[in-house]
Design a protein around this nucleic acid. Structure first.
Length: 263
DNA sequence: GCTGTTGTTGAAGC
DNA sequence: AGCTTCAACAACAG
């Protein structure tokens, strides 16, 4: 499932593929994923910017923008490059370059067309993001302070921190040495600062590893899990101490942490 | 055939 | 009111 790092790698790929090109036509494979103004409105417009808002990829055309919410299984691909199953919507380019499309096996994602400048309304309320800048301990504490819940549950709320998903939350907490079930109110200033650094490093590690890849792979598709210290590694020895990686449900989500060095 | 995933939201509960 | 928890969405693996 795409989180901030995967969305960033896809953003870069789409920019390489299509920035500056003009839309010649739109293929709709599944009208149910479409929201907002009709996708036909984009025909004839040049792609001026490819942005990432949290986990969402935003295609900025001259007068409109397409906000792509990938949710669980969504992925932005080039149609014709070998991965085009379940194409929900695709844009053809006037110069004949391979179309760019959105695939989404489980159809939880959607594509919303809005007027340029109104992207925020489609993206939804989004807190500050942990990458590319490091969130300071003060900034993190300010965003999470009002929560009464476990620190990991609060991290997964998009309004508090943008772009953090289950993997980034688990890995960031491990890097910071913080147990996921600790109540938000129990973190001291040093822990908040370490968490900001940990979340940044968890994101940056994936972005660096995936580099300029053309076809991002998710964990569910066998992406190399060596980069993860705790996520989906139940029962394995911690890389940092003698502890063992533990799994539990927290806030309804699978959560992995090292009981030895995450306090 | 039922359960468990998984992100996000909106409704229900406290 | 303000916060937390949970169902729903959809599809598939086990």
């Amino acid at each position: 499932m795409p989180e901030l790092p995967e969305a960033e790698v896809m953003r870069r790929a789409v920019a390489r593929w299509a920035l500056g090109r003009e839309v010649a036509g739109v293929e709709v494979g599944d009208p149910a994923v479409l929201r907002g103004l009709g996708v036909e409105a984009l025909v004839g417009q040049r792609l001026e910017a490819v942005e990432r808002w949290g986990k969402q990829v935003v295609l900025g055309f001259e007068a409109h923008a397409a906000v792509i919410h990938l949710r669980m299984t969504g992925k932005v691909i080039r149609v014709g490059a070998g991965e085009e199953r379940s194409v929900r919507v695709a844009w053809r380019w006037a110069d004949g370059a391979l179309p760019v499309g959105v695939i989404d096996r489980r159809r939880l994602g959607h594509v919303t067309v809005v007027r340029r400048g109104e992207e925020a309304g489609a993206v939804g309320e989004l807190g500050p993001e942990p990458w590319p800048g490091v969130l300071s301990g003060e900034a993190l504490a300010a965003q999470l302070r009002s929560a009464r819940s476990a620190v990991k549950a609060a991290l997964l709320e998009p309004r508090r921190v943008g772009g953090v998903g289950n993997i980034v939350a688990c890995e960031g907490l491990w890097r910071a040495g913080i147990a996921p079930h600790r109540p938000v109110g129990s973190l001291e200033p040093e822990a908040w600062a370490a968490l900001g650094e940990g979340l940044w490093a968890a994101c940056d590690a994936v972005i660096t590893a995936e580099g300029e890849t053309e076809e991002i792979r998710f964990v569910s598709e066998g992406a190399p899990p060596e980069g993860f210290a705790v996520y989906a590694r139940e029962g394995e020895r911690c890389r940092r101490c003698e502890g063992v990686v533990t799994r539990a449900q927290l806030g309804g989500r699978g959560t992995w942490w090292c009981a030895g060095c995450q306090r």
